[in-house]
């Protein structure tokens, strides 16, 4: 089932065009990452589809129009955890439950998941940032939503907090719910998501499954005794592309139809003595930089 269908969505803030004809399709069960540098329009997109911001043009539809008020079927964190500071965790979750019209008897299960059970009676304003973020995650689970949206869920957390939140996200993601995760942290998206869209300056640069976006090409790092000759050789070897120079090696990508042993044999035959060779699959970071730089 199609969960979210965004068509040609645009948003202008005065002269700033934050979104430019964005298209996005998300299906049930996908763990979908929206990846883009700061200011690329991730939060703007989410705020529009959640009914907070008014779009300038374009359209979007939730759940193929199945629900009159789709937001009740969505749990979401947008930018910051927003709660009543003078209320404790239980009281805040009670309000969420009241709005959702759901029927949880208590919130033990959720508070357990985010490890806040022993602080449930403290007021929200006394929480650390990490605790606030974790309470927000607990709140997204209330009312058994079909979709959960996380916007920069690890923003501002220390490494331990980041690890904890990621572990919780992993748990939630493996429950089979549809998840939308907006982030500028590649590592986060790569670890959690199975699909992703890359946006920059409000434009969609690419979308698809993580495997599709990562090319099958091999990334090679090569050093040789004579770097000048190596450079010449790489430039003329068909199947090598994207050559970048580093201190004492070149990084390039090798067409996945060519075997490494053939490559190194040909290099040897051309008088190149390789001193350093490292080959691996492309990482998301490289794909991301490649896609965003070519845009």
């Amino acid at each position: 089932m199609n969960v979210l269908n965004i068509q040609n969505l645009s948003k202008n803030y005065g002269k700033v065009q934050a979104l430019n004809k964005l298209n996005l399709q998300i299906n049930a069960g996908q763990v979908y990452g929206i990846l883009g540098p700061n200011g690329s329009g991730k939060t703007t997109t989410l705020a529009i589809i959640l009914g907070i911001l008014k779009k300038t043009s374009g359209s979007f539809e939730w759940f193929e129009g199945k629900y009159k008020n789709p937001n009740k079927k969505i749990g979401a964190i947008l930018e910051t955890p927003n709660f009543y500071p003078y209320k404790n965790a239980d009281q805040n979750l009670e309000i969420v439950k009241h709005i959702k019209g759901s029927n949880e008897k208590n919130f033990d299960e959720y508070l357990e998941l985010v490890d806040l059970k022993d602080r449930r009676k403290s007021d929200f304003k006394q929480y650390s940032l990490g605790m606030k973020q974790r309470l927000a995650i607990a709140a997204t689970l209330i009312g058994n939503p079909e979709v959960i949206i996380f916007d920069e869920p690890t923003n501002g957390l220390d490494p331990q907090g980041i690890a904890e939140v990621r572990k919780i996200l992993h748990n939630v993601a493996s429950s089979g719910k549809t998840i939308l995760l907006a982030s500028h942290i590649l590592d986060e998206v790569e670890k959690i998501c199975d699909h992703l869209a890359i946006i920059k300056k409000g434009k969609l640069l690419g979308a698809g499954s993580v495997n599709d976006i990562l090319s099958n090409d091999i990334t090679l790092e090569i050093g040789a005794i004579n770097m000048e000759n190596l450079k010449h050789f790489l430039n003329n070897f068909s199947g090598i592309s994207d050559i970048k120079a580093f201190n004492n090696f070149y990084r390039c990508s090798l067409d996945d139809t060519i075997k490494i042993e053939d490559f190194s044999k040909t290099a040897f035959e051309n008088g190149i003595i390789i001193t350093h060779l490292n080959s691996r699959k492309q990482r998301l970071e490289e794909a991301f930089l490649e896609i965003t730089n070519n845009a």
């Binding site: 959640l50 009914g51 907070i52 937001n71 009740k72 947008l78 927003n82 959702k100």
Partner: peptide, 14 residues
């Protein structure tokens, strides 16, 4: 100030 109206609308209050 607390952005709770924003959050209420996000989670389903119209």
């Amino acid at each position: 100030k607390n952005k709770t109206l924003r959050q209420s609308i996000i989670i389903g209050l119209t």
